[in-house]
């Protein structure tokens, strides 16, 4: 049984249809990436899974249970954490307070998890008392991912972790994402930077105007001439 199964979802912003029957599967332990151009429906797919924009039709099955229509704030206790687009860290809280917010729904000891986040992102430990909003974009991205990990999710949704970051930093962040996956967290990754995304992903889905047009193991997608031309910047 897959960890996450999305079956033919249709989502709307008002009257405008953003998703026209997206289906995808994420097996436990995988890194699955959604690639595609602006407006293809990548973020909308994540939002539909996460309950921010419940799909009008179709099913989202997580861990054997249908979760479409469950509000966003119930997702974390089910085991889905997300690092949203634009990071959305609490910029007036300190790094520590942000991480504590990530474990808000938990009542057990969180020190171990905080240590784990600091192992992954030593930079955050240095900045533990700093206001999150005063950190650089890269550090804020690290914090957003770290905060999501604090809930010990079964599935981590990452939306555009490379956005607004310098290329060196993008490499670094993606190395860490791979590390998180190797430690046992399943990841669904939405990314415009298809190059780096396909480098760490197990499988990939290509989205175009609200539908899946291609899906294959990441290695295969990287060699697909159409994908290379459209998303990997090769002519």
């Amino acid at each position: 049984m897959p960890l996450l199964e999305v079956e033919n979802i249709h989502s709307f912003y008002g009257h405008i249809q953003a998703l026209r029957g997206v289906s995808l599967v994420v097996e436990e332990g995988e890194v699955v990436t959604l690639i595609g151009s602006n407006g293809a429906g990548k973020t909308t797919t994540l939002r539909s899974i996460h309950g921010v924009l419940p799909p009008k039709e179709g099913k989202v099955i997580f861990d054997g249970e249908e979760i479409q229509g469950t509000p966003a704030h119930d997702m974390i206790s089910r085991g889905i954490a997300q690092s949203p687009e634009g990071r959305k860290i609490f910029s007036r809280m300190t790094v520590r307070e942000n991480l504590e917010m990530g474990a808000y729904h938990r009542t057990d000891d969180i020190r171990e998890d905080m240590e784990r986040v600091f192992d992954l992102f030593p930079r955050l430990k240095e900045r533990i008392k700093q206001e999150a909003g005063t950190m650089s974009g890269g550090e804020q991205q690290m914090l957003a991912i770290g905060r999501a990990l604090m809930s010990r999710p079964k599935l981590l949704l990452l939306d555009e972790p490379s956005m607004g970051l310098a290329p060196v930093l993008v490499e670094r962040i993606f190395q860490i994402i791979r590390e998180i996956n190797e430690q046992g967290t399943t990841i669904l990754l939405v990314e415009q930077n298809a190059n780096v995304a396909l480098e760490i992903a197990t499988r990939g889905y290509v989205l175009e105007t609200g539908t899946v047009v291609n899906s294959a193991p990441a290695e295969k997608l990287r060699q697909d001439p159409k994908v290379r031309e459209a998303y990997l910047g090769e002519i």
Partner: peptide, 24 residues
């Protein structure tokens, strides 16, 4: 309190607060 924390987070960003499991 925990509730106090939740208020601060909702004040800052409702969407992010919801992602933390807080019902705004």
């Amino acid at each position: 309190s925990r509730l106090g924390r939740a208020w601060v987070s909702v004040r800052e960003d409702e969407t992010a607060a919801a992602a933390m499991g807080i019902n705004p």
